[in-house]
């Protein structure tokens, strides 16, 4: 096994880790504020993938326009399908719309499924979250399709073609890999700055430390929580679109496994801790990839979860700590 092989597997792992990290941020953000595990988060990731596919098809698949009869989209498609500007605009639109739609859905879920249970025993919102998760899965299964859908245009061409961004020795790094890793790092940096530097961020931290006291000091707790339920799912949706583009398909139950893994990543890094979620995500992705490449693909999850157990034995609060004193 050569050095370039190690490098290539690490790259696979870093990319996978970027996805886990984006998803883990959503778990950790909500946990940090509400001490609640949002089990519906993996379904919001899945929905992000579907919304993204829908947007891509409407904006850059002529066959979809023909099939749906939305003729007015034709000139819009012509713009999105021409040149670099159109392509960048297409990506911005896809990620933006997907994040906003899913983010709003996250807020709606919080309003109707979690807020009424905020003062109920801890188990109640957890079960409610499972209910939402099952509801969303079945809604997609019944109303969209039970089949796995390819993340391509109707004629089978990819929206984002796999291109080599640059080469290290014999290892090709694809634009998609660079895109995923850079985006997740930038989004974390933005979120981190937002939470630590802005006024609303301070309100979030205050709410996570002591919701009632923060409320007495004039913080509008409901809107702070709603905001957390917008940001988390929006990041999840971005991961969902990336997942579709990178691995090539969406399915109604695709969120389950990445959801569990990202939750694990959040726990490894220290749940409630934003940088911890990021670290945990990349670490888990790299470990999985190396385990798969150097031991056996069948042992990938075994090794990843052995690492989780070891981390929890030696650092029960996760690598960067649970951030109890200053959650978020």
């Amino acid at each position: 096994m050569s050095l370039s092989y190690l490098l290539e597997q690490t790259l696979n792992g870093v990319t996978l880790g970027g996805l886990y990290a984006l998803l883990a941020l959503g778990y950790t953000l909500v946990y940090g504020i509400l001490l609640m595990i949002n089990f519906a988060h993996s379904e919001l990731f899945m929905l992000g993938g579907y919304v993204g596919l829908g947007v891509l098809k409407l904006l850059s698949d002529p066959a979809t326009v023909k099939a749906t009869g939305l003729g007015f989209l034709e000139p819009i498609q012509a713009f999105f399908m021409s040149g670099t500007v159109g392509f960048v605009a297409l990506l911005v639109a896809t990620f933006g719309i997907s994040a906003i739609v899913v983010g709003i859905l996250g807020m709606v879920i919080e309003r109707f499924a979690y807020r009424p249970l905020r003062h109920a025993p801890r188990l109640a919102p957890l079960i409610s979250a499972i209910g939402v998760s099952i509801f969303l899965q079945n809604a997609v299964l019944l109303w969209i399709d039970s089949k796995q859908l390819p993340y391509t245009r109707a004629d089978g061409s990819a929206f984002v073609t796999a291109q080599t961004a640059f080469t290290i020795g014999t290892v090709h790094v694809s634009t998609m890999q660079v895109f995923i890793v850079v985006t997740s790092l930038v989004l974390l940096a933005l979120l981190d700055t937002f939470v630590s530097k802005t006024r609303i961020g301070r309100a979030m931290r205050a709410t996570s430390q002591d919701g009632e006291a923060a409320g007495l000091m004039g913080v509008n707790i409901n809107s702070v929580i709603a905001l957390a339920f917008f940001i988390g799912p929006a990041l999840g949706a971005v991961a969902g679109v990336f997942n579709g583009m990178y691995y090539g398909s969406v399915k109604f139950n695709m969120g389950f496994v990445p959801g569990i893994k990202s939750f694990t990543a959040a726990v490894i890094g220290g749940i409630g801790n934003l940088r911890g979620a990021m670290l945990g995500g990349f670490l888990l992705g790299i470990i999985e990839s190396l385990a798969s490449g150097f031991v056996s693909n069948a042992y990938r999850d075994v090794i990843a979860f052995v690492v989780l157990i070891l981390v929890l034995i030696f650092r029960p609060g996760g690598l960067l700590g649970e951030a109890v004193a200053e959650k978020v």
Binding site: S2, E8, N12, K251, N253, S289, S296, N297, A298, R300
Partner: peptide, 20 residues
């Protein structure tokens, strides 16, 4: 000789192994 599961969608690591 490798194993995956029937629900896997991520084969990137496996592909690198196959390549080598």
């Amino acid at each position: 000789r490798e194993k995956t599961t029937d629900k896997d969608t991520d084969f990137k690591a496996l592909v690198t192994l196959i390549k080598s």
